[in-house]
């Protein structure tokens, strides 16, 4: 019994190590080659250089794409967190008929294959004559991201003592004040977490952005366009930048997500 337990532990640890190797080796390789002077990614490496970073720093197209990505991801972060919070709060606060259906619908978008969602978005945006504008990417990404925000915030609200909000009303707070002074402060860690997470998802998202973006390229779209032309070590530099941005957001999201205010129980 004890031996099988140990064996299982060894297997699981091995499994974990392999996962990390498969995930991180390509990324680390890409980071290493972004500092390599050779044009082609071959071993042995050439000398250390920052020239690829200088190149992208001086490329107005990269700046344009970065600006687009920033605008889109921040807008998406804010919008989908607001929508996610509202959905999570209705679930926490109200009981109504078809509530399960409501929740299922709210959580549906990520289950639709991205390519279908992207095509549908493109078709619809063209139909109403707004395709190719930056805010349409924001809209499409918000549809995709709001369910993530809702899931994160809902988990936090589930930890909230239902009496807490009633206690605020009882002490003279109107429903709005109770929301501002009690519900939002309580949910704040999850709100920050949801915002970072949705920003990260939007920042990395390629398929929908590629279909909908038109001339307003975001960074993932630009990367593909560079790749289609030639092999360019600039990609590694951009990739490194994207990787660290996303990782930072996801790590912040995770830190806030696991935050638990010590519950005031006796």
């Amino acid at each position: 019994m004890k031996n099988t337990g140990r064996l299982l532990t060894v297997i699981l640890i091995g499994y974990l190590v392999f996962i990390f190797i498969f995930i991180f080796t390509p990324i680390i390789t890409s980071i290493i080659f972004s500092f390599n002077s050779d044009r082609f990614p071959t071993i042995p490496l050439g000398s250390f250089t920052l020239k690829w970073y200088e190149l992208i720093y001086n490329d107005p197209d990269v700046w344009e794409a970065a600006k687009n990505s920033l605008i889109v991801s921040v807008s998406v972060g804010i919008l989908s967190t607001i929508i996610g919070f509202c959905t999570a709060y209705t679930d926490f606060r109200y009981e109504f008929r078809f509530k399960n259906m409501y929740l299922a619908l709210a959580l549906l978008p990520p289950t639709v294959p991205l390519i279908i969602l992207a095509l549908a978005m493109l078709a619809w945006f063209s139909k109403i004559g707004v395709s190719g504008q930056l805010w349409t990417i924001v809209l499409a990404h918000t549809v995709l991201c709001a369910p993530f925000a809702m899931a994160v915030i809902r988990l936090r609200l589930q930890q909230m003592d239902a009496d807490l909000e009633s206690a605020a009303w009882n002490l003279g707070a109107s429903e709005w004040l109770a929301m501002k002074e009690v519900v939002i402060p309580f949910a704040l860690p999850s709100i920050v977490s949801a915002m970072c997470l949705t920003m990260a998802v939007s920042f990395d998202e390629f398929a929908v952005a590629w279909f909908v973006s038109g001339l307003n390229k975001t960074i993932p779209v630009m990367i593909l366009e560079i790749l289609q032309g030639n092999i360019d070590p600039q990609i590694n530099a951009i990739g490194t930048f994207v990787f660290f941005t996303s990782m930072t957001l996801v790590i912040i999201a995770q830190l806030f997500f696991t935050f638990r205010s010590p519950k005031a129980t006796l």
């Binding site: 605020a168 003279g172 002074e181 005031a264």
Partner: peptide, 26 residues
């Protein structure tokens, strides 16, 4: 008609005096 709750329902993100001040603040 303030109430003392069975669960106490103290606000965990506020300290002691902020909890007490809540009703006056509202």
């Amino acid at each position: 008609t303030p109430m003392v709750w069975q669960s106490l329902a103290l606000f965990p993100f506020l300290n002691v005096i902020q909890n007490v001040e809540f009703g006056l603040k509202m």
